[in-house]
Every structure is written in C-alpha cells, then in structure tokens.
C-alpha cells in the first residue's frame, strides 16, 4: 500500500527542471514572449543559462499542456510574437518548488554547520 496523501491530479509535486523553473520565475511578474524570455532567463542566471530556441519552446509546449502557463493576447500582433503568462496553477507549483528548495537549503546548511563544528 502506498502511503501518499491524496492530492488532486494537477497538484502533484514534481521537481521542476531548470529551464521550466526559470521560465516560471520569469513569467511570475509579467507576461513575456519568446525572445524576451530568453533574455530574462539569461539575466536571471547572470548569463549562466542561455536557452536555445528549441529547448525554450519544448518547455513552453509542456507548460501549456500542463496548464501552468497560457498564451496571452497582445494588442500588438504585427510582430507575430505570442506572449505567455503564468496561470494560478503554475504560480502554485512555482511556490511549492521554491518552498521545497528552501527546505532543502535549510537542511543542507544545518548539516554543513554540524560537519564544520
């Protein structure tokens, strides 16, 4: 028997990959289109992560399918750019992932402190 607390299907906690995490963080405060997302992610990671277009849109497709982001209707459609915005579900998942990382960081710091003593 599996002792797992019952959750709705859309609320299953799974560790997020780095591109997905960075995309969600970038979209947390405002909608962005593909190119802006690449630039935002580059700036967020201090130039460490530069997503390729394929990786970015692969992650976007999966996030759209999961309902974590959605397409955002822009007034200016002349440039063929489609913006994306985070959904409440995506926001919840991001918050949970950040809590998970915080918990891990706290545990790791405590362990390291014990080791140095």
């Amino acid at each position: 028997m599996r002792h797992v607390s019952p959750r709705a299907k859309d609320e299953i906690i799974k560790p997020l990959t780095e591109p997905v995490m960075l995309i969600l963080i970038s979209l947390a405060d405002r909608p962005l289109h593909g190119y802006a997302l690449i630039k935002e992610i580059e700036s967020l990671s201090d130039g460490r992560v530069r997503l390729s277009t394929g990786t970015l849109y692969g992650a976007i497709r999966r996030l759209l399918a999961d309902g974590w982001i959605r397409r955002f209707e822009q007034d200016d459609k002349s440039r063929d750019k489609q913006a994306y915005r985070i959904t409440p579900l995506g926001y919840r998942q991001l918050r949970r992932e950040l809590e998970r990382i915080e918990h891990l960081t706290r545990a790791a710091k405590a362990n390291l402190r014990t080791r140095t003593l």
Binding site: H33, G34, R61, R79, D80
Partner: peptide
C-alpha cells in the same frame, strides 16, 4: 503551433 514564433525568436537571437 510554434513554427513562426520559433523562427522569429531564432532570427532575433
């Protein structure tokens, strides 16, 4: 679904 967007983003980068 993504062809035009991907090509535009690629061109910009």
């Amino acid at each position: 679904l993504f062809e035009v967007e991907m090509a535009n983003t690629f061109a910009a980068v």
